[in-house]
């Protein structure tokens, strides 16, 4: 077993129960609307909304699982007593959380497709649109999950790096909040600069996204997928930012976080 496999196995072992609870939770969250629909004889009134809602919630599964694992390790920080690089230590947790999110999304997508098979006549959407939309939507959620995770690791390492300075130890949350608002302030300001906006939107790729749901009479659903332009440079900037946050987190973990 390689060192990275060992890390993956360990991270999976310490988190599998949480994931199991999440799967149980989303199953219950699906059963309840199904029961309500059955009771009121109103098929498709709640379930599709529940599936979409859960898929959106899933965006936060990856960062939440990651933070839960880091929280467990952070109790002693003895996970740092390990000759592997910080990149390997963090990547292993991200990889395990990514797999959890992927499984949860596949489960919910499968539920969505089963609903579609049962109620094909009441859901008006092109099958090819449905599959293309499902794939793009899932990839989008995974990418957003990864991006939010990089921010989560970054804030976590900042928080723990500040732990060695008693003067700010009790005010670490304020520093994190300050950084959060500062970043949002700067990005909002930059987004308002027209030249920058023009450059970012210069190259675009059209993707099937932006679903519109219409609940029609007779318990019918009409779903349209609109074409949305995705700015290539914007996407690239987010990828660079996520990589930068990841590398800063690794640097902090190697040099500033103490046991």
């Amino acid at each position: 077993m390689s060192a990275f496999q060992g890390l993956l196995k360990k991270d999976f072992a310490i988190s599998k129960l949480w994931f199991l609870f999440w799967l149980i939770f989303i199953s219950v969250f699906l059963i309840i609307p199904l029961a309500i629909e059955s009771y009121f004889h109103a098929p498709l009134s709640f379930l599709p909304v529940a599936v979409i809602l859960l898929l959106v919630f899933n965006t936060f599964l990856l960062p939440c699982m990651l933070l839960s694992m880091l929280r467990l390790e952070g109790k002693t920080q003895l996970w740092l007593y390990n000759p592997q690089s910080s990149k390997a230590l963090i990547l292993s947790k991200i990889a395990v959380s990514f797999v959890y999110q992927l499984i949860a999304q596949l489960y919910l997508t499968a539920v969505g497709l089963v609903i579609y098979q049962f109620y094909k006549n009441q859901i008006h959407i092109e099958a090819s649109d449905l599959f293309a939309g499902a794939i793009i939507f899932n990839i989008g959620l995974l990418l957003v999950g990864l991006y939010v995770s990089c921010w989560a690791v970054f804030y976590w390492t900042i928080y723990h790096s500040l732990g060695k300075f008693p003067a700010v130890k009790n005010w670490r949350w304020l520093v994190i909040l300050f950084l959060f608002f500062l970043y949002n302030l700067i990005s909002t300001f930059l987004a308002k600069i027209e030249i920058l906006r023009d450059v970012i939107f210069k190259w675009k790729i059209p993707v099937l996204a932006g679903p519109n749901f219409n609940h029609k009479e007779g318990d019918n659903w009409e779903i349209f997928l609109n074409m949305t332009d995705l700015p290539v440079l914007g996407l690239l900037l987010y990828i660079i930012l996520a990589c930068g946050l990841f590398l800063i987190s690794c640097w902090l973990l190697d040099r500033k976080v103490e046991v």
């Binding site: 077993m1 390689s2 060192a3 496999q5 060992g6 890390l7 196995k9 360990k10 072992a13 310490i14 129960l17 467990l72 390990n82 000759p83 592997q84």
Partner: peptide, 17 residues
Amino acid sequence: YPSFTVGNMIDFYASQF
């Protein structure tokens, strides 16, 4: 890690060191 067995801990150390 509380959920580990003694054997898991040995395996983990063997993989890391």
